[in-house]
Amino acid sequence: MDKLERIDKINKGIQLLLSNNQDIISLISIGSFSQNSIDQFSDIDLYLFTNNPKKYLDNTNRSWIDPLGKILSIRIFKDLQEGVDKNKVVLENGLMYDLTIIDIKKIKLISYYLKLKDIGLVWLLPKFLKKGIEKSILKFYETIKRGYKVHVDKINLKDILERTITFSRMISPDKKIDEKLFFRHYNFFWQSCYTASIKLIRKDFYFTILTYDNYIKKELIRMIEWEAMLREKSTDVFYCSLKIYDWSREETCDDLYGTLLSDNIENMQKSLIKTAELYQKFSTLVANEYNFSLNKEFENFVIDFIKNVAIPEALNNKEILSENI
């Protein structure tokens, strides 16, 4: 199936979905499909707005989705990062639909809030409600800010979306990094790196991968994101390193390959060193920008520990294992 055939098949499926489910009030697509830039591996990201969300989150009822094609797999879950309910479907032809199900009441609440904002009466809302709505608006903005396509709109959703974008750009938090935030993440990285090395000495390599390596990599990416936004304030860093080859330097992407944990304890310890050294590079760039004083003593302690204690320990264990064999 080439690109044009794929797009045509998706569009026909969406039209059948809409004609068979009249309780879909609005439907938009985001991501590559909305921008006509899909390839053979792209999934289809759809936001489905309805007054009957339970219908689309019922794992026992799949009749509503039959127009899309034969289902191979379906997964219903709460996306904690976006704070929304999702229904992810894989079809027999390989197409994967990532459906976000939105109760139309939430959109009406956002619309009501924006109207109050326009006439200067938002102060009438309780603080907790105002804060909650603004948080929802900002999360929604992160989803649609890169572009979207409207497939059906029975409530003038496009106007609400555009007002959401305008409002979010006005209240988006300043990207400046304060000292408390910086060191909370900085200290977490170095302590996690030290703990990971100790866990590897104890041969808890899988626990290290699932837990501490996850912590470390997230903190490394966070620092790379901060540095990228310092170089160019308008940089769109997506999230969790998504599309890093678009927003970061090419050499950074190459360096990240060396941080991946390998096939034995010794090489895992060496990858920790590469991760730590890469983190040093980017944390220094960010710290210099804000005149933060880094804890070089602890940085050197961690790296020296891995080089002079952890790696020799791994080599010693390897020799003992060879002798026993």
Rank of each mutant, 00 (worst) to 15 (best):
37 S>Q: 15
253 C>A: 12
48 L>V: 01
298 F>D: 10
240 C>L: 13
94 G>T: 03
163 R>L: 11
158 K>Y: 04
245 Y>K: 14
128 F>K: 14
177 I>H: 10
64 W>Y: 12
267 N>P: 07
71 I>S: 01
72 L>R: 10
7 I>M: 13
130 K>L: 01
115 K>Q: 14
83 G>D: 10
300 N>F: 15
207 F>H: 10
246 D>F: 13
72 L>T: 07
313 E>K: 08
288 N>E: 15
190 W>Y: 08
237 V>F: 09
12 K>S: 00
60 T>F: 12
253 C>Q: 14
136 S>G: 03
243 K>L: 12
67 P>L: 03
15 Q>N: 05
239 Y>R: 14
324 N>M: 14
188 F>G: 10
76 I>K: 08
302 V>A: 02
310 A>W: 04
286 V>T: 13
97 Y>K: 01
85 D>H: 15
262 S>I: 06
296 K>P: 05
272 L>D: 02
55 K>P: 02
203 K>S: 11
204 D>M: 14
70 K>E: 12
281 K>A: 02
195 T>L: 10
257 Y>R: 11
28 I>S: 00
30 I>K: 01
34 S>A: 15
230 L>S: 07
237 V>K: 05
41 F>T: 05
229 M>V: 09
72 L>P: 03
124 L>G: 07
183 F>I: 08
115 K>E: 15
273 I>N: 05
315 L>F: 05
303 I>W: 08
278 L>E: 06
275 T>A: 13
227 E>V: 06
178 D>L: 05
194 Y>T: 01
20 N>L: 08
321 L>K: 15
298 F>M: 09
56 Y>P: 05
201 I>E: 15
32 S>C: 02
239 Y>P: 06
325 I>F: 11
251 E>D: 14
189 F>D: 04
103 D>G: 01
280 Q>F: 06
17 L>M: 02
228 A>L: 07
81 Q>T: 14
200 L>N: 02
50 T>Y: 06
97 Y>T: 00
263 D>M: 09
11 N>P: 00
272 L>I: 07
141 Y>V: 12
101 I>H: 00
105 K>C: 06
298 F>A: 09
11 N>A: 15
289 E>R: 11
272 L>S: 03
124 L>W: 11
9 K>H: 05
168 S>Y: 13
130 K>Q: 12
58 D>T: 04
